[in-house]
Design a protein around this nucleic acid. Structure first.
Lengths: 225, 225
DNA sequence: GCATATGTTCAGAAACCGTTCAGGGGCCGA
DNA sequence: TCGGCCCCTGAACGGTTTCTGAACATATGC
């Protein structure tokens, strides 16, 4: 999962980035409203954390522009204490949740997880595909009830594919959601990771769709198609 | 485990803080309703002790606000003798237990332990993981029936991990529940403590999940792997 | 069977984690 | 009040895992 943090306080931004990276997200940071708006417009984020008090363009305006452009990603806004009017404006502009500063990182993470879950149309932190189970909260996966050991990138890959099970996902899309901005796309890391994942969860679970990408099969939904 | 005490009587607050610290908790104290509400809103406590008679904002209102904001931590309220109506209001507002003043510190500790137990889904004060036993009541741990000597931070670490056994816990989360408010997060103290703990309870009991955090293994649940 | 797309293997690099240790602070006993 | 002891902190260093990118191998479709 890839998220964008728009926050001008450099310390806070760094802290958040590190915490979310620890939790297995790919994280980009924008330091002002303009950069934030640009990134959100051009990169495919799964969720955005948006501070409302920003240099250049204020948060509410950024959010309005995104929504006007048809951007659907969930947005969690950060407001200063007692900025009640801003908070309301934020919701009107299309925010999905808010948190008042100062807040606790853990709470922010929990809320973001909830947003991502809602966005993916799930009600729990776990996704099941036949006898494969992906637990996003514990960052663990099970095959037939047995835990399998995954590295953090392997898990990100699996987690993203599980959130979009049954759909063909292009290499580009995977790269974009697993890595943050600066990454050299001319490499075959995705193939490598898919290979490693297959070795661990069973080759047949990930179908290759030549020329398009990969698909994580959901045994409960096959037959039709 | 990290708790918040909201109590305006300075003497009592100090006494409680010291008692709970001795028992191995990380403790924050708030002196009035406003500060209490703010802390509870922003820090991830495992439980809260809340006096109902408070300056600035009364206890019941504080509690109501927390619950309205979706805070789930267990709350134990302290009431003056014969304030029956307050007590009822407290329960309606979402309290989990109460104690009337004056009380014995020991009873308060016992009730708080019970709340923490329930929150973690246990029925006793001790948690067992194979031949490792964590006794939250006595703040001690045993391996194979033999007591092991743990420093207070070592015990906090173990206790928190035991309450969430089997789950991956990030460094960030550990820091937040083991320390009280002021702590510089850019250090490797967690690694150091994990190292020391491992030396005492056995290296293999704490699994490192690279890039994510640590997991306390429960031999009764591993079956696989 | 050729060309292109995908899979596999591997080694160097980078990130991450464990260990050790010294300095400092707090607590306790003298 | 002073000294000693224990514990905590933060930094440095070294080992290990994981990631990356490339080279080579195999599969697929034309």
């Amino acid at each position: 999962m890839r998220i964008l943090i728009v926050e001008d306080d450099a310390d806070l931004a760094r802290q958040l980035k590190s915490a979310f990276k620890d939790a297995g997200y790919a994280v980009d940071v924008a330091k002002d409203g303009e950069e934030g708006h640009f990134l959100g417009d051009t990169e495919p984020y799964d969720a955005v954390i948006l501070d409302l008090g920003l240099p250049l363009i204020d948060g509410v305006s950024v959010l309005q522009k995104w929504r006007a452009d048809g951007k659907k990603f969930p947005v969690l806004i950060l407001t200063a204490r007692d900025q009640w009017s801003e908070k309301v404006a934020g919701f009107d502009a299309g925010a999905d949740d808010y948190l008042t500063k100062p807040f606790h990182v853990e709470e922010l993470m929990a809320r973001l997880r909830a947003l991502l879950r809602r966005a993916a149309g799930h009600t729990t932190d776990t996704i099941e595909l036949g006898d494969l189970m992906v637990d996003n909260r514990a960052a663990r996966a099970f095959v037939d009830g047995m835990a399998i050991k995954l590295t953090s990138h392997e898990f990100r890959l699996l987690s993203y594919m599980a959130a979009h099970k049954g759909r063909v996902i292009s290499r580009t899309e995977l790269v974009e959601h697993i890595y943050d901005q600066d990454f050299d796309r001319d490499s075959n890391t995705i193939e490598v990771f898919v290979g490693r994942l297959r070795k661990k969860i069973g080759t047949e679970r990930i179908e290759t769709v030549r020329g398009l990408g990969y698909r994580l099969l959901d045994p409960d939904m096959e037959s039709s198609d």
